[in-house]
């Protein structure tokens, strides 16, 4: 079991770094603004809109904001990603995991540490519940990204198949509706093929599980809220419904027995 304090410490460090970078960026921007306003007050000729905008040092601000983002997502803006040429229909470009793998993973680990820390009877439970809830939302986002990756790859393959089978010259001379039908058929075949794949099945199963976990958490929160305000919870209403259902079943059975005896 992970140490809960360790998780809180890591979380605190991230917040601290982020806050420092944020204030640093703000401080410089405010300082430039002050300089600009004092210059304008002293020299009314400099108070045009262009001068006002020009007074901000955007390069410097970007550097500071970049620092803020890096505090959250260490690999942000790595050169290898930036220098890779972009080809619009390369399925890899639509792999959302490439875009979303940084901060959520860090956070997920931290939240896990918090949620799995030693539990006491009455202490810090809301914090742990909140950490669990947050982590489940991140799990859902991750599962959704992985599912999207599978689907985007399918669309990429469909496009590649279509572009291999139908050249631009063919499209020029052929009927547009026929071309559309051809594209839809290729897309449909590819989607059906993908839906039958284990990768799709597993990605969708994970998405389903993650979505249900979030929904169950929301329901638990609703039950807690009902408890606070002394309203009947869903569990209590369900218990009643079950009792009524069993009684109705019993009544139907007895009615049939009576009808059978009369006949």
């Amino acid at each position: 079991m992970a140490d809960a304090d360790q998780g809180f410490e890591k979380m605190f460090d991230i917040w601290k770094e982020g806050q420092e970078a944020f204030f640093e960026a703000q401080k410089k921007a405010v300082s430039r603004m002050n300089e600009m306003f004092s210059a304008s007050l002293n020299n009314p000729e400099q108070s045009s809109l262009r001068d006002w905008i020009g007074a901000f040092d955007f390069d410097m601000s970007f550097t500071d904001w970049d620092g803020l983002i890096k505090a959250w997502a260490a690999p942000w803006g790595s050169k290898s990603d930036q220098e890779k040429p972009f080809t619009p229909f390369d399925p890899e470009n639509w792999n959302l995991q490439n875009w979303q793998q940084y901060t959520p993973e860090q956070l997920r680990l931290i939240l896990g540490n918090i949620a799995q820390g030693p539990r006491f009877a009455d202490m810090a439970t809301p914090h742990r519940d909140a950490a669990e809830a947050w982590r489940e939302v991140l799990d859902y986002q991750k599962a959704a990204a992985e599912f999207s990756t599978v689907m985007q790859a399918a669309w990429g393959r469909a496009y590649q198949t279509f572009s291999k089978q139908y050249s631009l010259d063919y499209l020029k001379v052929n009927d547009g509706n026929e071309n559309l039908e051809a594209w839809l058929k290729i897309a449909n075949d590819e989607l059906l093929e993908t839906q039958g794949s284990q990768a799709f099945m597993d990605a969708q199963k994970q998405l389903l599980r993650a979505g249900l976990a979030v929904k169950a958490r929301q329901q638990k929160a609703a039950e807690d809220w009902c408890n606070i305000y002394q309203l009947p919870t869903r569990t209590e209403v369900d218990d009643l419904a079950k009792t009524v259902q069993e009684l109705k079943r019993e009544v139907r059975k007895l009615k049939k027995e009576i009808a059978g005896k009369k006949a």
Binding site: T87, P88, F89, S163, L168, L171, K172, D175, G176, N177, N179, L180
Partner: peptide
């Protein structure tokens, strides 16, 4: 031709059908 340009050209040819 760039993939995007090919797609754009193709789009022009189907414009009347659109």
């Amino acid at each position: 031709m760039d993939e995007g340009d090919v797609a754009l050209e193709a789009w022009k040819y189907v414009l009347s059908d659109v």
